[in-house]
Computed example of a mutant assay.
Amino acid sequence: MAGITSADVARESGVSRTTVSYVLTGREGVTISEETRRRVRETAVRLGYAPSAAARALRTGRSDLVLCILPDWPVGPVMETLLDELADELSGRGLSVLVHHGRRTRPLADLWRAVTPRAVIGFAPFADEDLLMMRQAGIQVLGTLGEDHRPDEDGPSETQLAIGDLQARHLAAGGARRLGYAWPTDRRLEDFARDRLLGVQRACVDLGLSEPVVHPVALDVPAATAVRGWRDQGVTGVTAYNDDVALAVLAGLRAEELSCPGDIRVVGVDDVPAAALAAPALTTVAQSIEVQARYLAALVLADLDGSEEKPSPPGPGLRLVERESG
Rank of each mutant, 00 (worst) to 15 (best):
19 T>W: 00
187 R>S: 10
253 L>K: 04
175 G>N: 08
52 S>E: 14
151 P>H: 11
208 G>Y: 12
103 R>W: 13
314 P>K: 09
104 R>S: 09
185 T>Q: 09
233 Q>H: 15
147 E>H: 15
249 V>T: 01
133 M>C: 07
36 T>I: 07
110 D>H: 13
251 A>S: 11
31 T>I: 00
236 T>H: 08
321 V>H: 06
222 P>F: 05
254 R>M: 09
5 T>K: 08
304 L>Q: 08
183 W>S: 06
255 A>F: 06
107 P>L: 06
134 M>C: 02
64 D>K: 12
219 L>Q: 03
121 I>F: 00
156 P>R: 01
277 L>H: 01
130 D>R: 07
138 G>K: 02
6 S>E: 15
219 L>F: 04
177 R>N: 06
291 V>R: 08
269 V>E: 01
28 E>W: 13
277 L>D: 07
10 A>Y: 05
138 G>Q: 04
189 L>N: 04
236 T>F: 05
275 A>Q: 01
213 V>D: 05
3 G>E: 15
75 V>A: 12
308 E>T: 15
251 A>R: 11
156 P>G: 02
65 L>E: 03
108 L>I: 09
34 E>W: 00
69 I>D: 02
147 E>G: 15
111 L>K: 12
316 P>M: 08
17 R>I: 09
73 W>T: 05
141 V>F: 01
275 A>F: 00
175 G>Q: 06
60 T>W: 09
19 T>Q: 00
284 T>I: 10
62 R>V: 05
308 E>A: 15
54 A>V: 14
7 A>V: 12
291 V>C: 05
7 A>M: 09
242 N>Q: 08
237 G>M: 03
243 D>Y: 04
39 R>K: 15
126 F>C: 07
140 Q>C: 00
140 Q>P: 00
312 S>W: 11
109 A>Y: 02
63 S>F: 03
110 D>T: 11
293 A>T: 01
96 S>T: 14
50 A>H: 14
256 E>F: 10
118 R>K: 00
63 S>Q: 06
305 D>Q: 04
87 A>V: 09
100 H>R: 15
67 L>D: 01
130 D>V: 10
91 S>R: 14
170 H>G: 02
253 L>M: 07
86 L>F: 05
250 L>G: 03
171 L>S: 02
2 A>W: 11
251 A>G: 08
244 D>R: 07
278 A>K: 02
86 L>G: 01
324 E>H: 10
325 S>A: 00
243 D>A: 05
175 G>A: 08
325 S>W: 02
67 L>P: 01
202 R>H: 10
212 P>T: 01
208 G>H: 11
201 Q>H: 07
274 A>R: 03
324 E>C: 07
318 L>I: 09
256 E>V: 12
298 A>T: 10
64 D>P: 09
50 A>I: 14
222 P>A: 06
153 E>S: 11
101 H>E: 15
300 V>G: 03
309 E>P: 05
156 P>E: 04
244 D>W: 05
272 V>R: 04
174 G>W: 04
85 E>S: 11
163 I>H: 03
73 W>I: 08
252 G>N: 03
139 I>M: 02
187 R>H: 09
65 L>M: 13
190 E>F: 09
248 A>Y: 01
224 A>R: 06
229 G>A: 14
79 M>L: 11
307 S>A: 13
56 R>A: 14
247 L>W: 03
264 I>G: 02
205 V>I: 01
212 P>Y: 05
22 Y>L: 13
156 P>W: 02
